[in-house]
Amino acid sequence: MSINIQSLSISIGEKTLLDTIDLTINPNELTVLIGPNGAGKSSLLKACSGDIHPDTGEIFINQNPIQSYSPINLAKTRAVMTQSYEMGFGFTVMEIVSMGCFIYEEQVSKCQRQKIIKDVMNFMEISHLAERNFMTLSGGEQQRTQLARVLAQLWQPYEQEEARYLFLDEPTSSLDVFHQYHVLSLAKELTKRNIGVLAVVHDLSLAASFADQLVLLNNGEIVTKGESENVLQRSYLEKVYGIKAEYFHQSKEVKPSILLDRNQ
């Protein structure tokens, strides 16, 4: 069981968003997409979420083509955290998080549901904001609230036979350094529950620290993929990002990072 993307191409008018992408996203793995702005990371994520339809090629989720899923069944199989969210109405944080329980709301008791909401809010450390109006929160707090909602969608059942997936589009963009690591550690935790995670991350050191599979995109194509150490090679970084930099992992005791040359 996995997500299989087979020679996927998507274009809008003249512009090619994705060009013959082949990729497998395994449950029990954290796959991280990296690449410069406009490389096609978000498009790939949207195609996997079912938001945009492939021009050619196929996406199979657990062996079934993505088009064969109804909205409900798709929601039971994957959760999505998008880059932006508009909210012009004054819901409380608790109300927003509880929306994540929509698909299984009838199957669980009110008590269980409240426990789930409490758990995910504790996980994202937003319990103290439960009664606050969402619109009055800071950017990072809003992002953590939305993440809690997305987590709630996959919280029940805790584990299941059928693999599930979590798509995160720049989940760390507004977060402080502590919460950046916290969120990605959590994503990594989730992979132990038969959940495959696909995340777009801009910070290369952060990506290298957590990814089981790192995928480097440029101009809608996959440049290379695999383990962080092999993907973040000097030649690739220079070709794709135009930076001179080195992958550096001092010891097992510390996370790897990307060191930029003094002379760019």
């Binding site: 938001d51 999505v80 508009e86």
Partner: peptide
Amino acid sequence: LLGEAQAQHLGV
């Protein structure tokens, strides 16, 4: 109210 894509993701 969360947004069209977001509602779709939640199963609507």
